[in-house]
């Protein structure tokens, strides 16, 4: 079959390096979604990502944009600094749940509460991926991890933390949505949410975050297909999808 014209391929904002992520990892899907949005908004030359500590520590290897990398949990603080120094840049803090919801809890709460004009992409895969599958604050009740081999018991290990709901009650947060990537339909909703978040940042409206429920087949010990099912059946039940906040912060 003779190829005539490319209709859709890798977005310009991603380079052609093969990503180090495991087969079926949600990070790869979300990287592509972010890159497609960067292309659509035409902001590749003024976009800065902040990579976290976690599997996506090497996100900067793959984006054809500027990138920084922050100490564990500190990406929102670094993003705040970059945005304040260079307000014309579009700044994304990209973080996992260990990074954002454990060691980085202080940074994310205060960046949101200050109404920093940055966008956070929060990859909730309910586990510490990079270090070998330890319990994260977002690990579900009963979910097995290497540090909760019998399943998470809330009497010993506390409850899974709902970050989107928490940040939505802060007066400084502008837009908070939780999405997932379990089907083309959900992928497109995630894309719409990420686009809206960057657009609000471009208008100077303040802190935006998209939490993406994302599969980690390797540390969940599931096939990529069953990992999507786990998100659909187990994670969405505890972490409902939807918009948690969409209100202007400053009314002047």
């Amino acid at each position: 079959m003779e190829k005539k014209k490319l209709i859709r391929g890798r977005p310009d904002a991603l380079n052609d390096k093969i990503m180090h992520y495991c087969p079926g990892c949600g990070h790869g899907i979300v990287h592509r979604i972010v890159a497609e949005v960067v292309d659509e908004l035409g902001i590749k030359d003024r976009f800065v990502g902040i990579a976290p500590v976690g599997c996506s520590v090497f996100a900067y290897w793959y984006f054809n944009t500027d990138f920084h990398q922050a100490a564990h949990g500190r990406a929102p603080a670094v993003a705040s600094g970059i945005k304040r120094a260079r307000p014309e840049l579009i700044v994304m803090s990209y973080q996992g749940d260990g990074d954002l919801a454990a060691i980085g809890t202080a940074e994310i709460v205060h960046a949101a509460n200050r109404g920093e004009n940055i966008t956070v992409i929060f990859i909730n895969n309910a586990i510490y991926g990079m270090t070998g599958g330890q319990m994260a604050p977002t690990t579900l009740i009963g979910q097995k991890s290497t540090t909760t081999p019998l399943g998470r018991d809330p009497r010993k290990a506390g409850f899974p933390i709902k970050i989107s709901e928490m940040l939505a009650v802060l007066p400084g947060s502008r837009y908070i949505e939780r999405t997932t990537v379990t089907s083309p339909k959900e992928v497109n909703k995630t894309k719409k949410a990420i686009k809206k978040a960057f657009e609000l940042q471009m208008k100077g409206e303040g802190f935006t975050m998209v939490e993406v429920l994302s599969p980690c087949p390797t540390n969940w010990r599931l096939t990529p297909k069953d990992a999507l099912k786990f998100v659909e059946e187990k994670m969405v039940e505890y972490y409902p999808l939807g918009v948690f906040k969409d209100e202007p912060v400053f009314n002047d």
Partner: peptide, 9 residues
């Protein structure tokens, strides 16, 4: 997840 597929006319 790996941008392994392209759509062509």
């Amino acid at each position: 997840p790996d941008t392994a597929i392209e759509l062509w006319e």
